[in-house]
Design a protein around this nucleic acid. Structure first.
Lengths: 208, 208
DNA sequence: CCGAAACTGAACTGATCAGTTTATAATCGG
DNA sequence: CCGATTATAAACTGATCAGTTCAGTTTCGG
């Protein structure tokens, strides 16, 4: 997860450069972004930029890495173990869908999908701080709820993955391929309700 | 879905050009692909290529379009309405996962995600011939099975989307971010069994 | 077998872009 | 307030690439 950030870092405009890079890379992708654009966006001269980062590739990886960390931080605040299962799941679903539909979330996803064979480290990074991170948190909650007798699950990781996938139904493909970008409350509720119903039908214990 | 293919088409090397373009675009993405590479891959001179297509952009769109059509054609052969529901679903799941894990499938997906904001038409095209097409077929089958009394569904489209999402659990994120590229039979069976169990728990009628 | 249409290869144009250099100016610690 | 570090603007290099041109060759219908 680390292993870059070697010959990097020095003075005070470091973060400025990184912010500019994040912005432009996110908007234009790796190939689409020009270093001059980034320097301009960062409010910094090209020479300064190159004094911080040896080349565009490494600048990109650092920008992406910081973006992934940011994303991991903003992830699910610990699911509320006190609330009824349906309620906890609903909260989790709302968070995930909110991220997934945000222009920010789309940007990261698009970028990582596009560049993860040019930059294999990037794919790993995004996976670890995104899908894997979310899975861990949900899986832990599911174990807790199962121990309490509210759910009946044996493969917790699969159950967690299924839940997150159910939350993407209909919405995600439309967003990611630009077929529909805004969704009404009721369109979203339809998907969340559906996800919870299906999940509880399989894994719930208190029938009725 | 059409609306390109205007000033295109003339002689006999048309398909050669398109095949080369498909190959190279799929491998290198839009920016990454050079027209010289494409001409070389197609076994055609650059001048010939430009006699068929006015510019790189349109060549790309045509190549992507033909790829989408190809994909739609190779989609689920009509689900077998005679077989028991679980069996029909299993077959569908195997087809979808097979496509999803193929380098071919990954290539199209990656390309479309990456370029669908540079080329909005591309996103629409891919969505129509991919996700939407699959949804229609599965949804139709689910209506049939519900009418027969084997399933109890009200929102057929949502159910279809949920099933396809369930089939992606675990596998797809790993593949698309390059975390894992090959999967054993049992890894795949785990996901398919899980998808069917969850789906049937929610929508099945004959309990037991 | 002839003439037109399609194709070739190679050279060329003009633009863009990563990365460097240089001469100069701002900033800051002591 | 001096000297060193850090930043700047702008010009430059070398490479890549989309798209054009052209003189010559292949292909094919009639």
């Amino acid at each position: 997860m680390a292993a870059f950030a070697e010959q990097i870092r020095k003075g005070r405009k470091f973060d400025q450069v990184l912010d500019g890079a994040r912005e432009v890379f996110m908007r234009d992708g790796y190939e689409g972004a020009s270093v001059d654009d980034i320097a301009r966006a960062a409010g910094v001269s090209k020479a300064t930029l190159y004094s911080y980062f040896p080349d565009k590739r490494l600048l990109f990886l650092e920008a992406a890495r910081s973006e992934c960390q940011r994303q991991a931080r903003r992830a699910l605040d610990q699911l509320d173990p006190a609330a009824p299962v349906e309620h906890a799941l609903r909260t989790a679903a709302e968070h995930m869908i909110g991220f997934l539909l945000s222009t920010f979330g789309q940007g990261v996803y698009r970028l990582c999908v596009a560049e993860s064979d040019r930059f294999p480290e990037l794919g790993q990074m995004f996976y670890a701080s995104g899908p894997a991170h979310v899975r861990e948190q949900i899986s832990a909650y599911l174990q807790y709820a199962t121990a309490r007798g509210d759910l009946a699950i044996t493969d917790f990781d699969l159950a967690a993955d299924q839940f997150t996938e159910l939350c993407r139904a209909d919405l995600f493909p439309k967003v990611i391929f630009g077929v529909q970008t805004r969704f009404s409350e009721s369109e979203i509720r339809r998907v969340i309700d559906g996800a919870i119903s299906t999940f509880m039908a399989r894994y719930g214990t208190h029938r009725g």
